[in-house]
């Protein structure tokens, strides 16, 4: 860890963000009208980008089995893709992994004292190691927001870098918990910090804090990813998580990705939705597009 402690981030400065300008841009993007074949294409794409998530104290083997079934075969009648990943607590990684054996679906595990991150570094690293050993393909860590807001950027940077190292081959998603960061400037700053520290993905939220993912926050994070790409050629992934429950909303996110980062990011390898109920709404819309009939949730399995 020592090699990370001298990072010069005490004076982290970065380009500023104008909130009203971001909101205007978002409002314009959300007015895109997505119809017919482009809609079907986007709904399927969104489904393939879902990280089906359950992060509850009451999660049980039964719940995990149902979720994995849903992940593998979202709907029986449709020629549709499976989702991208199933996201669980570390204690359920091994079980999840076994259910998903033979599929391309990734197992993502939260770690680092999720969701608050209020623990020491040794415990966070131990948890990360454990999740990876249990078979996690992806680690969703949380940043230490208290330290970040106190301006201790080196601390936050080094922690992320250490977790990244602990991940080994597993992909690292860094959760900024933007709902606690108070401003888009802070979102921008945290995004840059996470990317510089080695994040493969940056992710908005734990889902435990309101507001979770929003379009303005996502736009700022996408713009940070874009600037990093301009500078380095390296593609960082993006995962809005929490609060995205409708297909319409998901399509707005895809439009935003399409017009901010271009088609390279329209792929589960670089864009994910962290959501639990979104998948069903996407399915309902797909069936509606196919049959022309508006759907009822009673015809779709809830998990």
């Amino acid at each position: 860890m020592d090699k990370h402690t001298k990072t010069p981030y005490e004076d982290l400065t970065c380009v500023t963000v104008d909130q009203v300008g971001v909101e205007e841009r978002v409002s314009r993007l959300t007015k895109r009208s997505i119809k017919k074949e482009s809609k079907v294409w986007a709904l399927k794409m969104a489904l393939s980008m879902c990280d089906l998530t359950t992060l509850e104290g009451k999660d049980s083997p039964g719940k995990i089995r149902q979720l994995c079934n849903k992940a593998i075969r979202p709907h029986e009648d449709l020629d549709i893709p499976s989702v991208a990943a199933v996201c669980v607590y570390p204690s359920l990684v091994r079980l999840t992994k076994s259910h998903l054996k033979g599929t391309k679906i990734q197992v993502a595990s939260v770690a680092t004292a999720f969701p608050s991150g209020q623990s020491n570094r040794a415990i966070k690293l131990a948890e990360t190691h454990w999740a990876v050993e249990e078979g996690a393909d992806e680690i969703d860590m949380v940043i230490s927001r208290g330290h970040f807001l106190a301006g201790e950027y080196a601390y936050v940077h080094d922690e992320i870098a250490a977790v990244k190292e602990a991940c080994g081959k597993a992909h690292l998603k860094v959760i900024l918990e933007t709902g606690e960061l108070s401003s888009l400037d802070q979102v921008r700053k945290a995004s840059e910090l996470a990317i510089r520290a080695g994040a493969d993905f940056i992710k908005t939220s734990t889902g435990k804090v309101q507001p979770a993912a929003t379009l303005p926050v996502t736009l700022v994070m996408l713009e940070t990813i874009r600037d990093h790409f301009y500078a380095t050629g390296k593609r960082i992934g993006m995962k809005p998580a929490g609060g995205i429950s409708t297909a319409k909303n998901a399509l707005q996110y895809l439009v935003m990705v399409n017009e901010t980062l271009g088609s390279d990011w329209l792929s589960p390898s670089l864009f994910r939705f962290g959501a639990s109920s979104l998948a069903n709404d996407l399915l309902m819309q797909l069936i509606k597009e196919k049959t022309g009939r508006y759907q009822s949730i009673d015809y779709f399995s809830k998990d």
Partner: peptide, 13 residues
């Protein structure tokens, strides 16, 4: 330059 690719399969109908 690292160029973004805006030739996209996501064509709005």
């Amino acid at each position: 330059e690292h160029a973004l690719n805006f030739e996209t399969p996501f064509q709005y109908a």
